[in-house]
Simulated scan of single mutants.
Amino acid sequence: MPVDLTWTPQPAAPGTLRAQAEWEGRAGTAAAVTSSLMGWQRIRFEITEDASPGVDGARHAYTPTLGAFSAVIGASGDILVPEDRLRSAMLMAAQGRVVLEEELDKLLGKPWDEELEPFRYAGDGAPVRWLHAAV
Rank of each mutant, 00 (worst) to 15 (best):
T63M: 13
D56C: 09
A68M: 06
R85K: 13
S70A: 11
G67I: 11
S36F: 11
S70F: 05
R85T: 04
G74S: 04
E49C: 13
I43P: 06
L37K: 13
S88Y: 07
A61M: 11
T34H: 15
S76P: 05
E83K: 11
T65C: 06
S88P: 02
I47Y: 07
S36L: 06
W40G: 12
R87N: 14
M92R: 15
M90P: 00
I79K: 14
S52F: 07
R97I: 05
G77K: 08
A51C: 07
G67V: 02
P82L: 04
D50V: 02
A71M: 05
G96W: 02
Q41K: 13
W40F: 11
P53S: 06
A75L: 03
V72E: 13
A89P: 08
R85N: 06
R97G: 03
P82W: 04
R42F: 01
P53N: 07
A58I: 08
E83N: 10
W40R: 15
A93L: 06
A71E: 02
G57R: 02
L37F: 09
L91Y: 12
D84H: 14
G57A: 10
V55C: 09
D50K: 02
H60I: 00
D78P: 02
A68S: 15
A58R: 15
S70T: 11
L37I: 09
A94W: 12
A89E: 05
E83H: 12
I43D: 05
S52D: 01
G39R: 12
A58E: 13
S52E: 03
T65D: 15
A89G: 01
P64F: 03
R87T: 08
D56V: 03
G54Y: 08
A75H: 11
F69V: 00
P53Y: 09
R85M: 11
G96N: 11
M90D: 12
Q95T: 03
Q95Y: 03
I73G: 00
R97T: 06
E46R: 06
I47E: 09
I43Y: 03
I47H: 09
L80S: 00
Q41A: 12
A68L: 11
L86I: 14
H60N: 04
V81R: 10
A71L: 02
L66E: 00
Y62L: 05
M92Q: 15
P82T: 05
G96V: 14
I73T: 09
Y62T: 06
